[in-house]
């Protein structure tokens, strides 16, 4: 029995086993603390769907050898730009969402191209450079948001210059995916459209990785020398992966925003890359290898932990200040734990 257990744990990987066990324990605690568990589960599914594409954006980068894409805020900002354009054009509903995607993808491709050029020049320290690219672009856009010539009242401050810090999507495409074919079972609300969209994106990436180009990207990530000897243009593969990752980041933030109900401008995208990195690492990926299953498991567990730990901590420590401290400790604690597993959490 214990032998069998050991081999099962080894197959799952100890870090993943620890974190999944922790999630289950917290859910059980929530049940005994008389929290609304079905509601928590519903929220968990929503959070999974809304963050999923952002986490998926990590996969091409990891497989092409550029590592974890800490420069994700770049893609996020491209997505927000596309989203604002669609609002400016007065598009609403699912059409608005699709127009937002159509607008943001070309922007993301251009931005990703230059980002890819940069990453090809700093081989070996892509992750550090990417982190600062993310920080820089967010700071730069803090000025950008102030001077952009958007006209829509939903986007601009009513008085003064510049764009709002949060832009409500209530009149545009708030929850268009979440509400699509949504149903409730045992008190758990399933955001069908949101999850379907996420799974579709996963399928797209999965199929892409099995094309000739996808194969070249995987080979590049495994061994630069091998790829060169097989006639693969290493820089081009890395470039394609970076562009794809940036575009997925852009789509990811649109999915996130329609579920959340707001676009958040200025410094909000700053830390979003870290959450995505933490999620995929918790799912079992390393800086060199990632699978779609890592994305699915990672985003569910990471978001679940953040979501459930907070109300549980709230009940245990009723003092207002302490629970906020707990939230920060839990969130960054998980991210830190995940980062220690970047070498491959087996």
């Amino acid at each position: 029995m214990s032998e069998k257990l050991k081999s099962t744990i080894k197959n799952i990987g100890i870090p993943r086993f620890v974190i999944v066990t922790m999630l289950i324990v917290i859910y059980i605690a929530a049940y005994f603390l008389k929290l609304n568990v079905p509601r928590l589960l519903s929220d968990n599914l929503v959070r999974m769907g809304m963050n999923g594409v952002l986490v998926l954006a990590m996969v091409p980068g990891i497989l092409s050898g550029t590592g974890l894409n800490f420069g994700l805020p770049l893609g996020i900002i491209c997505g927000i730009l596309g989203g604002l354009l669609s609002i400016e054009l007065q598009m609403t509903g699912i059409v608005g969402f699709l127009v937002a995607m159509m607008c943001s993808i070309p922007i993301a491709i251009i931005a990703g191209y230059f980002y890819g050029k940069l990453l090809n020049r700093v081989k070996g320290s892509e992750m550090m450079v990417g982190t600062y690219v993310g920080f820089s672009i967010v700071s730069l856009m803090c000025i950008g948001w102030l001077v952009m010539p958007f006209k829509s009242d939903a986007i601009r401050w009513p008085i003064g210059e510049g764009l709002r810090t949060t832009i409500a999507l209530t009149d545009f495409y708030d929850k268009v995916l979440n509400d699509f074919l949504q149903f409730t079972i045992f008190g758990v609300t399933v955001p069908t459209g949101l999850l379907l969209f996420f799974f579709m994106m996963c399928l797209f990436v999965f199929l892409f990785l099995r094309t000739k180009t996808g194969m070249a990207i995987r080979a590049t990530g495994s061994s630069n020398k091998f790829s060169k000897a097989s006639g693969i243009d290493v820089d081009k593969s890395r470039m394609i992966a970076t562009v794809l990752s940036t575009a997925l980041g852009a789509i990811g933030i649109l999915v996130y925003a329609q579920s959340y109900g707001f676009f958040q401008l200025y410094t909000a995208p700053l830390m979003m890359g870290f959450a995505a990195v933490a999620a995929i690492l918790l799912g079992g990926a390393s800086a060199h290898n990632a699978k779609i299953t890592h994305v699915l498991l990672g985003v569910f567990v990471f978001q679940g932990l953040l979501l459930v730990a907070l109300p549980v901590a709230n009940v245990i420590f009723p003092q207002g200040n302490l629970s906020e401290v707990m939230r920060v400790i839990v969130q960054y604690g998980i991210i830190l734990y995940a980062l220690t597993k970047a070498g491959g959490g087996q």
Binding site: R218, A219, S222, S223, K225, F226, A229, H288, N289
Partner: peptide
Amino acid sequence: DRKGVGLLLDE
């Protein structure tokens, strides 16, 4: 260089 150039060790 079998392991460096010759093979994708993780495939």
